Amino acid sequence: MIVWRGWGILVLLIAAVLGGPATLLAEVLLGPELMNFGTAGGLAVAGVVVFFAGSRLNAPHPGYDPRTGAPVMAGGGHTFFFVPMQYWGFVLLAASLVTTVVTLLGA
């Protein structure tokens, strides 16, 4: 079961859109034994994109309390598996690093 709030689902979509084609391109260019370098590259780019998108979406912005009309700072709430979206950028970068190391050790 996938759990997200707000635009948190973009973590999965960005990782799939950038990681999948990069893997296929690396398979064509480098061969099937080194295609995981494409996966690692796609995940690294996805990590950067997710970090900046999450930082932008979760940044506080001024708003008003609908009951009192008092100014408040609103924002946040874009999570994927209960983790704020921007932190998934670091997870994707770590997955990229692990994929690179595993590919190098297996090659």
Rank of each mutant, 00 (worst) to 15 (best):
P32L: 07
E33V: 12
E33Q: 13
L34H: 13
F37S: 01
F37C: 03
T39D: 05
T39L: 10
A40R: 00
A40L: 04
G41C: 02
G42E: 01
L43R: 00
L43V: 04
L43F: 02
A44D: 01
V45W: 02
A46R: 02
G47M: 02
G47P: 05
V48I: 14
V48K: 05
V49N: 01
F51H: 15
F51L: 13
F51S: 11
F51P: 03
F52C: 06
A53G: 01
A53E: 08
R56Y: 14
R56P: 04
R56S: 15
R56G: 09
A59G: 08
P60D: 06
P62N: 00
G63I: 09
D65R: 07
T68Q: 07
A70I: 10
A70S: 11
V72L: 14
M73T: 10
A74F: 09
A74H: 09
G75S: 00
G76C: 08
T79V: 14
T79F: 10
T79Y: 10
F80A: 07
F82C: 11
P84M: 10
M85D: 06
M85F: 08
M85K: 02
Q86R: 14
Y87K: 11
W88S: 12
W88I: 13
F90G: 15
L92Y: 02
L92C: 06
L93N: 04
A94Q: 06
